[in-house]
Amino acid sequence: MKSFNYVIQDEVGIHARPAGILAKAVKKYSSKITISGNGKSADAGKLMAVMSMGIKKGMEVTVTAEGEDEDTAIAETEKFFKENF
């Protein structure tokens, strides 16, 4: 299992559009990508679940990837977080 921590910089937090793009993007990995934060956790491939975590600016999230392609998956997901949240 691979993981990274990230503090949300975006003013609105994890909001709908990038979360939706992320949900689509992670489907191409065989690994399971999970986001945890604000006392909750959700499958990154599920937009509504991710949004319902209510992650806002300044909160720290932990993202994990578990599966065969976890190295690529975590690297690309971390890049996505840095660019979008």
Binding site: A16, R17, G20, A23, K46, L47, M48
Partner: peptide, 16 residues
């Protein structure tokens, strides 16, 4: 316009 793109993504949500 992005809102309609978001609607489309929500409509495709697995849990929903």
């Amino acid at each position: 316009a992005a809102i309609f793109d978001v609607h489309a993504m929500m409509l495709e949500d697995d849990d929903f």
